[in-house]
């Protein structure tokens, strides 16, 4: 199967997801059409229960859509076997969760190395790669800490390091800063922005409008539908962004929203 380099990384056509049956049927995602190009930093916003997380889970091949088509790198995923989906999760997708989701009985470096396990790397290579990634997040001294010995921000950085260790084309982040204070939030966002600059596609679900300024595109969802889809002008030097004051940033993002 050849992959068209110009094809969008993600193409959704009429994607629909329903929970329940009959009278209690509830449509979580209603006919979503969306294409995401390689290298985009998409922020998905919306009230609770609008289907953001479900959409992210479907994009990450953790969940199935009931209707519609999902092309990942031009390949339809609906017909894939579960082991094929697992392989794609292993090779192409990195997950960052709100609740960090480190395996509590493994130390930091083992947690980061875990995705490589399923790619069949030998132990030494795995740990070397994990160590390298941790170094870029300035966590080298924490390699042998257990997850509960870390602060929230550190834990999420470890989780991001884990999401990146297998060099995924797409990073999916579900409220990565939801459990963090604003200071740690911006550190985390800066890390994600940095990853984005390296060419990775990032799709992030967030409640916090302040964080959308890091994104190149903001999608608002309401009741399972895409309400607005805004392309943000990329800041010429995105590295400047975190150094700005918090207030300024949120004003800017508000402006974009009203526009």
């Amino acid at each position: 199967m050849t992959i068209d380099a110009t094809a969008p990384v993600i193409a959704l056509d009429g994607l629909t997801k329903r929970y329940g049956m009959g009278e209690v049927e509830h449509t979580v995602l209603d006919n979503i059409n969306l294409t995401i190009q390689k290298g985009e930093f998409v922020a998905i916003m919306g009230p609770s229960g609008c289907g953001k997380t479900t959409l992210l889970n479907i994009l990450g091949l953790l969940d199935h859509a009931d209707d519609g088509e999902y092309l990942l790198d031009g390949i339809p995923v609906n017909t894939m076997s579960s082991s094929h989906r697992a392989r794609i999760r292993s090779d192409q997708i990195g997950f960052v969760f709100q609740s960090f989701n480190l395996v509590s009985r493994m130390n930091v470096i083992e947690n980061v190395a875990l995705p490589l396990t399923y790619q069949g790397y030998p132990t030494t290579k795995r740990l070397q790669a994990a160590s390298k990634v941790l170094a870029t997040f300035h966590l080298s001294e924490r390699e042998y800490y257990m997850p509960w010995q870390l602060s929230g921000g550190q834990t999420q950085r470890v989780a991001i390091a884990r999401a990146l260790v297998n060099n995924p084309a797409i990073v999916l982040a579900d409220e990565p800063t939801g459990n963090l204070d604003s200071r740690s939030s911006h550190v985390i966002m800066e890390e994600l922005a940095d990853i984005h600059r390296h060419g990775n596609t990032i799709i992030m679900v967030t409640h916090n409008p302040a964080l959308t300024s890091y994104a190149s595109r903001v999608i608002h969802m309401i009741d399972g539908r895409i309400d607005t889809d805004t392309q943000l002008p990329r800041p010429a030097k995105p590295a400047v962004a975190p150094k700005r004051k918090l207030g300024k940033k949120s004003k800017k993002s508000q402006k974009v929203e009203t526009a």
Binding site: S90, D91, I93, P115
Partner: peptide, 16 residues
């Protein structure tokens, strides 16, 4: 259970 979920999200197949 949670660990299983994490492992699956990180690329573990059912066979794993």
């Amino acid at each position: 259970t949670r660990e299983i979920g994490i492992r699956k999200a990180l690329g573990a197949s059912n066979i794993h």
